[in-house]
Write a protein that binds this DNA or RNA. Sequence first.
DNA 1: CTGAAAGCGCTTACAG
DNA 2: CTGAAAGCGCTTACAG
Lengths: 341, 341
Amino acid sequence: MKKSIPTLKAMAEQLGLSISTVSRALNNHPDISSETRKRVQALASEVNYIPNIFAKGFRAHKTNILGVVVPNITHYFTTTLIRGILEEASLRGYRVIVSESNNDVVKQTEMLNTMIQFGVDGVLMSISKMTRDIDSILKVMHTLPLVLLDKASNKIPCTQVVINEEEAAYNAVEHLINIGKKRIAIIKETQFSYNSEKRFAGYLRALKDYNLPIDEKIILTVEDISLTQGEQMTNILMSLKEKPDAIFAITDGAAIGAIKTLKKHKVKIPEDIAVVGFSNSLNSTIIEPQLTTVDQPGQKIGATAVKYLIQEIDNPNVELINKTIEVRSNLIIRDSTLSIK
Amino acid sequence: MKKSIPTLKAMAEQLGLSISTVSRALNNHPDISSETRKRVQALASEVNYIPNIFAKGFRAHKTNILGVVVPNITHYFTTTLIRGILEEASLRGYRVIVSESNNDVVKQTEMLNTMIQFGVDGVLMSISKMTRDIDSILKVMHTLPLVLLDKASNKIPCTQVVINEEEAAYNAVEHLINIGKKRIAIIKETQFSYNSEKRFAGYLRALKDYNLPIDEKIILTVEDISLTQGEQMTNILMSLKEKPDAIFAITDGAAIGAIKTLKKHKVKIPEDIAVVGFSNSLNSTIIEPQLTTVDQPGQKIGATAVKYLIQEIDNPNVELINKTIEVRSNLIIRDSTLSIK
DNA sequence: CTGAAAGCGCTTACAG
DNA sequence: CTGAAAGCGCTTACAG
């Protein structure tokens, strides 16, 4: 029931030409007479000839496919990364195989291996939280160009495209200080989360620069940050004798959990306690008050990562430079920090 | 700098065997002596041999890759579809190429063509809104197995995996009637949106079954439904002499826009006007009051679609049955319709 | 039990 | 200007 897909051979027979000539005619090789070229191209469009890119790539050891591994595809920010990747890849004639690691290190390695098996030309990866064992990733790098994006790692010597995490967090905390906050809590993750560590560093630097004390009691660390964790941590903060006057949650989810809990406690936001999140997720404008947060240009990060990856694919013998490219993010100020007088 | 990838030929030379023997040994062919088999397999795992799936697939006219085309990858529901697709595909040894049509019919056709060019074994698609020209899709069907999911079309003769749109909408409206609502507005899209039409049909059937009048003035149709459109349509509803006592928005976004607008008008939700959405998006529990909505099992739909697609791939000559498979969805009742006494 | 050879669809250096 | 041939990595019917 399926029609047979047209091939060079079939067209060559039909036209009484050799396969080579047909191939050259379609690729606009200068040797071919314009008459032959026209005949071939006419037939090609008539039968809707589409070159088999694998036969092509198989010869050239190239599939024009990029592999993408992300921890969780349902996160809005991740989808913006992917959109950027798809667009840029498409412009450059690449397709994209996507897979999820579910923040599972074993699965992450598995995914990398199938990527190799499927012959991708390079891999883009946001690494899973809790990736302590770098070996499997290093192995991939010996076989294939690899670029990390968003969730990166200082320990892996490859090109990384990230946002200015530390600076963005610094700016967020500085904003809280500027609106008069002096006791700023943070809800963060453990040291195995790249993003969390960077944001925490920005938080610490801002407090130091403005001579604010660092108080362990309002530095809350959770294993796997979420809205629920934001609620729980905020309850802990509300039970303190010395309550904070601001909360910097390193994800929007946790920040929204914080806002929900503060509202239950009848705390005025931002007058009593201001809240800042991170990501500019869709939810951040649904919650009331709307959330001040850091907008991360996911699409740009994705597109940039593709550019660097293809550069490495096209120049396999150039010694790698392994830059870390920081894409700028912006603080979006909304009602959760800005009291409208 | 990149290591050469091990091949059968390289291993054959190293072991002093023929390529055929090495191939058979790795595939556990019964002819091979267990000693040879062991030697080969030992070397294979030592050099970390990974078969080139394209050389393999190229021979068998099979790439073990599925193509996915969705209108918009950033929609949460779409990511759950994709997650289901990725999981099921992975279990069955397939990889997935993803692409976005951005609800652009031309781009959708382009994507389908590159899918063919990249030699996918089959395609899963959520069709773009406003797809009036079916020809390009029918063409694909002659070349490749195609299964539609979620956003389908009665006009395309292929297997379709959808939710029970009509019934779900009926149940949602029935729920509004059960809590005492009698003048139920609907915010929907034009007739070129498959989902909208089905949901509208369910709305009409419920009103008829319960002998409620159908009033064109509270049936609002927009081109491209969104939160903003939900706000605008709700403003229109609030300007009517005879206001509705409930709003059924065919997406959560529009429902949330409705709630935001109703709150501005100081309307009590659900006492004065109840609101129901559709999708159970993440936002639906962030908005206050929390939104009653229809939960769509995206992951299951995705996984189911993969099963049917692979079935077609494996049985190319069986005459297609072109079933429409309906996956059940559930109404999730929350504060926007249920007054807690 | 093992090997030589053909072939999947394409490109390209080599002839003519 | 055109064609015959090799080769990309693999599997498999055919020999032996």
